[in-house]
């Protein structure tokens, strides 16, 4: 079932909007600007709120639904804000055969959220990802840009505690 995409109340700043307008201006005559526009908009806002896509749509005349269709196609785009600490567990083959599935399950239990969600306090969000290329350290998880490798389930508590 297609989830109703609930976005938290939008609270963009003036600077963010100025940046967005600048990005739109830079790409005005760029064929196929949709992806770079969405990527940069997500960089600016952290996610893709409806208000931002609407702005892009109004400025570029790309239909809003088209932008939304693109945004929901690629897993990198998020319609919800991410947690302060973004946890992603690598479920690539190398990590999987070394037990990263168990790490992922342990995290969903401990944080009480499923993949793609954010804890109610906005602290942690959890995602599974495919191969971050650190196969030598498998199994691997990332908290923001920090890589934790050669993990066991028992390590999870300690890692989370670092961010509490």
């Amino acid at each position: 079932m297609a989830e109703k995409k609930q976005t938290v109340p939008f609270s963009g700043t003036k600077e963010q909007e100025e940046k967005l307008m600048q990005v739109i201006a830079e790409h005005r005559d760029d064929p196929g600007a949709t992806m770079p526009l969405l990527q940069k908009a997500q960089e600016i806002y952290g996610y893709l709120p409806r208000e931002v896509l609407k702005k892009i749509s109004d400025e570029t005349m790309i239909p809003l639904e088209k932008l939304y269709g693109v945004a929901t196609f690629y897993s990198q785009f998020s319609l919800n804000p991410k947690g302060k600490y973004r946890i992603s567990v690598c479920l690539g083959t190398a990590c999987y055969v070394k037990g990263s599935g168990d790490i992922y399950n342990a995290l969903t239990e401990k944080l009480n959220i499923s993949g793609g969600e954010c804890t109610p306090d906005g602290k942690f969000s959890l995602d599974a990802c495919r191969c971050v290329g650190a196969c030598g350290l498998a199994p691997v998880m990332l908290v923001n840009d920090e890589v934790y490798g050669r993990l066991t389930v028992d390590d999870v508590d300690d890692i989370l505690a670092k961010y509490e």
């Binding site: 297609a2 809003l64 639904e65 939304y68 269709g69 196609f73 319609l79």
Partner: peptide, 18 residues
């Protein structure tokens, strides 16, 4: 105003932001 949203088995035709 309608288009494919999401992907794979979850693909559905709908409007922006459902």
């Amino acid at each position: 105003v309608i288009g494919p949203n999401n992907r794979g088995f979850a693909t559905s035709i709908g409007c922006a932001f459902e």
